[in-house]
């Protein structure tokens, strides 16, 4: 059943992105920022983790999940270290993703060239 929910929820999130591009004429960069901020807000009010429990990869793969992880890391570190945790915790959960992007991007650039 979770596969069906993953398909529907993940598809719905992407459909919202497509509508923002086609109807609201937003650029891809703006859609990305909106999604990350929306994910962080939904995480802050406790909704996004529930969505991940419900739809699995349908909610954890779209970029909204990155916003969720940003907020999640910050909240956890605030609970542990006080307010400074809001600064130090932001990249706690997301550092693996960011570092991977840099490392694999570098590795790819060693043997691949953009084709245009």
């Amino acid at each position: 059943m979770i596969f069906l929910w993953a398909f529907l929820v993940g598809g719905a999130i992407c459909a919202v992105g497509q509508l923002l591009i086609d109807v609201a004429h937003l650029t891809a960069a703006r859609v990305m920022v909106i999604f990350v901020v929306a994910g962080a807000i939904l995480s802050g009010i406790g909704l996004y983790p529930k969505l991940i429990d419900f739809a699995g990869a349908g909610a954890s793969v779209p970029i909204t999940s990155f916003g969720n992880s940003l907020a999640h890391g910050a909240i956890a570190e605030v609970k542990r270290d006080g307010l400074i945790g809001a600064i130090t915790g932001i990249f706690e959960l997301t550092s693996a993703g960011i570092s991977s992007a840099i490392v694999f991007g570098f590795l790819a650039s060693l043997f691949a060239r953009p084709r245009g």
């Binding site: 891809a28 960069a29 953009p114």
Partner: peptide, 17 residues
């Protein structure tokens, strides 16, 4: 094409729709 897209909009390898 590729130099203009990179400067005016997004690099083509970004794959923007």
């Amino acid at each position: 094409n590729a130099s203009a897209e990179r400067q005016m909009r997004f690099p083509t390898e970004y794959g923007s729709q």
